[in-house]
Simulated scan of single mutants.
Amino acid sequence: MLGGVIAHAQDTKAASNAEITAAEAWAFPVYPPLSELQAPLPHPQERVHVTGSARGYMQSQIDQSLPDWFPQDHPPAPTIVAEGRKQMESCKGCHGFNGTGTPATASPAGLPKAYILEQFAAFRAGQRGANTPRSSQDMRKEARAVGDDDLRLAADYFSKMKYQSHVQVIETATTPKMHWKFLMQVPDKGSAREPIGQRIIETPVSFADYRYGSDRTTYIAYVPPGSIARGAAISAKGTGAAAACESCHGATLHGVGVIPPLAGRSPTYIMRELILFRTGKRSNPQAAPMRTEASQLGINDMIDVAAYAASRKP
């Protein structure tokens, strides 16, 4: 069985531009249209709750700032994380108090501090976030606005946070039909399904938990049948001219030194970054090895390694 998996992977070729464009349609978040942003919300005085939290907040409070639903889950957060600064968003607004993020954003929790600082330098220099999805462009703007002291505080805070995976990876030949809603794919009403094809479909178990910024939001990631086993083979032995993922990220994909961990993280986010490496949109010098690696992978290979990495315990 394993020999067949390896052969399948080695038969693939580097992703074509057409395949990349097709993958971008599901891997890159679609920003909500104005009509969605203007959709009716609960009454300002209505009290809102999320799964597992004893706290409740009025909609008017949530409109002003995403609340801290689980203060017991993290140490006191620096001002830049919890509140932001004048003309600068708080880190928690996209990445949460715990740094868990969402499939549409990065998960800085547990990343090496040096790596976080390296990525901020790349955003500031225009080596990340230029001519890329809007989420990356937003980060480029934030990186240029944040002061060095706040940056170091945020990097120190998130690097010391223990990352906890919130994604369950499920292999399936079909997936519920989805539509985009607030940067996230969510199931259509009804029970209609469609072939998964060459895709990863990641969706929150509770859209309300996601919408109201719960750091404990859980996700289901649907991936093609056999992708986890194929990804394990690529991770351990490589495929074609592409090196084994474990040769840099470690045998457990928990990272080595400044090289970031991958285990248990969003497969959609991993896939998106592989595409950005493949298209040269992560152009800082430190990204050169990954640009080479991604140039040797087909779309199926990328999906497989993302599925496998997400299925591992962090």
Rank of each mutant, 00 (worst) to 15 (best):
G3M: 15
H8C: 15
A14L: 02
S16R: 03
S16L: 01
E19V: 06
T21N: 06
A22F: 11
A22K: 05
E24G: 04
Y31G: 07
P32Q: 03
E36Y: 05
L37Y: 00
P40W: 02
P42N: 09
P44Q: 12
Q45P: 00
E46Y: 00
V50G: 07
T51A: 14
A54T: 12
S60P: 04
Q64K: 15
L66S: 06
P67D: 09
D68I: 02
D73S: 10
H74I: 00
P75I: 13
P76S: 14
V81K: 05
G84L: 02
G84Y: 01
Q87G: 05
S90N: 02
G96D: 02
F97W: 15
T100S: 12
A104G: 04
S107W: 06
S107C: 02
L117V: 04
E118P: 05
Q119E: 11
A121R: 11
A122K: 08
Q127F: 04
Q127V: 05
Q127L: 07
R128F: 05
N131A: 13
S135A: 10
D138H: 08
V146M: 07
D150W: 02
L153N: 11
K160H: 13
V167L: 07
V167Q: 03
A173G: 15
A173S: 08
P176S: 04
M178T: 15
K181E: 15
Q185W: 04
P187G: 04
D188M: 10
E194Y: 12
I196A: 04
Y210K: 03
R211M: 13
Y212D: 01
D215S: 07
T218H: 15
I220C: 03
A221T: 07
P224T: 03
A232S: 14
A233M: 14
A236E: 12
A242E: 07
A243E: 13
A243W: 11
A244D: 09
C245T: 14
E246T: 11
H249W: 11
G250W: 10
L253G: 14
H254V: 03
G255L: 04
V256S: 04
V258D: 06
I259D: 14
A263R: 08
T268G: 10
I270W: 01
I270Q: 15
I270D: 08
E273P: 05
F277L: 02
G280A: 12
K281F: 02
P289Y: 07
M290N: 14
M290A: 11
E293Y: 08
A294G: 08
I299Y: 08
A306D: 12
A309F: 08
R312V: 14
K313E: 13
